[in-house]
């Protein structure tokens, strides 16, 4: 069903080199409307690099990005933001010394009037909109005037995510959204991420926590040494899922592209196959 739709994001044959290091060696990735895609891989597999290409932090050496089927030119983070792509960083990227409303609108303040480069902020409007956003996403923060340093880890992550959705992002990229959280907070954040779908967002989650992806993801893509080695729907039971994904991550299984789904693919010898 979803495969017949136009992907909201389509990355084609992305290559990225850093000096002699080939970080990405021709990766294809699609994201469909309303989908939660898990992006996994071992350290240095290229998942963060791929997402930084999409968010405009890196320019690819080769490859194309299409949004809604149209070629998109993303040269810097501002470009990607303007096209509705938001990144939620691993360390939340919030200013602890500012309040919730200030963080939500940081860099995109609502301006009442301007005189040259002096821009007079409309604080009340920002506070009201931040409040509306928190309520809409059912984020439990009592006041938008609370400084972020007084929030719990889960609340901070919620603010970071809410920030992205506040500007009607179509695509939200999350880098390890649950890595720094307690068990109780993880639950809430995962619920929040699931609920973003209802607000029309498509989401890519980079995560080491396969159980998170299993719980809220629709599809998982596995990167290994700069290549995509698996791309499949999230299905089955958690143990089977984890076993298969880990097999692709470590290179014990490497059959992507050889057969349709890889469900009956062969398990190779554990020695990594290197190009």
């Amino acid at each position: 069903m979803s495969s017949q739709q136009t992907p909201i994001v389509e990355m084609r044959n992305i290559h990225k080199r850093f000096g002699a290091v080939q970080a990405l060696r021709g990766v294809d990735l699609e994201l469909y409307p309303g989908e939660i895609l898990g992006l996994v891989g071992d350290n240095a597999a290229g998942k963060s690099t791929l997402m930084k290409v999409l968010s405009g932090a890196y320019l690819p050496n080769e490859g194309d990005i299409l949004l809604h089927g149209q070629p998109a030119h993303i040269a810097n983070p501002e470009d990607s933001r303007r096209l509705g792509i938001e990144m939620v960083y691993q360390d939340f990227a919030l200013c602890n010394n500012l309040d919730v409303a200030a963080n939500v609108f940081l860099g995109r303040e609502v301006v009442r009037w301007r005189l040259g480069s002096l821009r007079w902020m409309n604080k009340r409007t920002m506070e009201q909109r931040a409040r509306t956003m928190l309520d809409r996403l059912r984020i439990d923060i009592s006041s938008v005037r609370l400084r972020v340093e007084n929030l719990s880890g889960g609340q901070r992550q919620a603010v970071a995510i809410g920030r992205a959705i506040a500007f009607d992002a179509k695509v939200i990229i999350m880098d390890e959204p649950t890595a720094a959280l307690s068990v109780a907070a993880i639950d809430k954040v995962l619920d929040l991420i699931s609920s973003l779908r209802e607000h029309g967002a498509s989401i890519i989650i980079i995560s080491h926590r396969l159980e998170d992806i299993f719980r809220i993801g629709d599809r998982v893509a596995v990167l290994r040494q700069g290549r995509k080695v698996a791309d499949r729907p999230v299905a089955g039971d958690i143990h089977e899922f984890r076993e298969q994904v880990v097999a692709y991550m470590v290179g014990a299984r490497d059959d992507y592209g050889s057969e349709n789904d890889g469900e009956n693919g062969a398990v190779r010898s554990p020695s990594p196959v290197n190009a």
Binding site: P77, E78, R81, M87, Y89, D91, F92, A93, L94, C95, N96, N97, L98, A102, L106, G107, R108, E109, V111, S117, L118, R119, W120, M121, K123
Partner: peptide, 22 residues
Amino acid sequence: RTTNGRHIYAVGGNEEAARVSG
């Protein structure tokens, strides 16, 4: 009251966060 003023606080609070916020 101005965006520049707020951004001064933001840069002092978390330079990296300020940068990725544009």
